[in-house]
Simulated scan of single mutants.
Amino acid sequence: MIMEYKTVESSYITISELMLPSHSNFSGKIHGGYILSLMDQIAFACASRFSGHYCVTASVDTVDFLNPIEIGELVTMKASVNYVGRSSMVIGIRVDSENITTGISKHCNSSYFTMVAKDENGKNTVVPGLVLSCDDDLRRFFKSVKRISRRKDGMDHDETFDYKSSEALSELKNFNVRLENY
């Protein structure tokens, strides 16, 4: 079997959408759930374009809402494949909003979606390899490797960590909690 490779650039997707009152929450800002839905859509489009297969969301890594998005602003999302495994891809997404009357833009969010390619029977399928062709591609790839490693280390720690040990319980004094029935 000959391994296929594709460039990061071939995965680029950009979408823009005007934020309407129907997208807002009770405080008049754009609802975070609506933004997450758009992010899931662009992650799907990016992963599917790159892999040539239907893709599903496997996980979402850290979503930090850095700045609120206002009604009437133009939201632009940019996505690219940052990392590939056998059947999975990490999609990096950047969200910016622009006040279209003043032209002032702000970075609102960055996140990483892990998408998995599926074949016509719903089974995981192999994705193309990734061609890293510039400093940004290389930086994003290695950052993805580090995030994946930290997540795996955390899972291993969870399996071995004794939540009821005297050491663990004594650490609770550093937090805003109170133990009862212990």
Rank of each mutant, 00 (worst) to 15 (best):
Y163M: 12
G52Y: 01
I13R: 05
I93C: 10
T102D: 04
F141C: 13
L20W: 11
T62Y: 01
G72A: 02
E17D: 12
F161P: 04
S37Q: 13
T76Q: 14
S22M: 08
I15G: 12
T114M: 09
T125S: 09
I42S: 13
L130P: 05
K164R: 09
L20E: 08
A47M: 10
I42H: 10
T62R: 15
S166C: 03
Y5T: 10
A43W: 11
S88T: 15
F175N: 07
I71W: 07
Y54W: 06
T57D: 04
N121K: 15
N99S: 03
R178S: 12
S133Q: 15
E9M: 10
S165K: 10
I13H: 01
A58Q: 05
G122R: 06
L172F: 08
S22L: 13
G28V: 13
A45R: 08
S97E: 09
Y163C: 06
K152W: 05
S144W: 04
M39Y: 04
G85N: 01
M1D: 13
N99F: 06
L172S: 03
G154Y: 02
T101Y: 10
H53W: 05
M115P: 04
K123V: 01
Y112S: 09
S16C: 07
T62N: 06
N109I: 08
G52K: 08
N124V: 01
T14K: 05
R139M: 14
E17Y: 02
L172M: 10
N99E: 03
E167R: 14
S59E: 05
E4D: 04
I91H: 10
R151T: 09
S110P: 00
I13L: 05
V60H: 03
H107T: 11
V63Q: 03
V90K: 14
A45L: 15
D40S: 06
I148V: 09
S87I: 04
G122K: 13
E171T: 06
K106F: 02
Y5E: 06
V60C: 07
S105R: 15
E120L: 06
R147L: 10
F44C: 05
M39N: 00
T102H: 04
N124Y: 03
D119K: 08
V60P: 03
A117L: 06
K106R: 15
F26K: 10
F142Y: 14
T102G: 03
C134W: 02
M3W: 01
F142E: 14
V95N: 10
V177F: 07
N82I: 04
T62Q: 13
R139S: 11
S110F: 00
M3R: 07
S59Y: 03
D158P: 04
S110C: 00
L169T: 14
S22K: 14
G32Y: 02
E4N: 11
I30K: 02
C46P: 00
E120G: 01
R140A: 10
F161D: 06
V8M: 01
V127N: 13
G33E: 05
M19H: 01
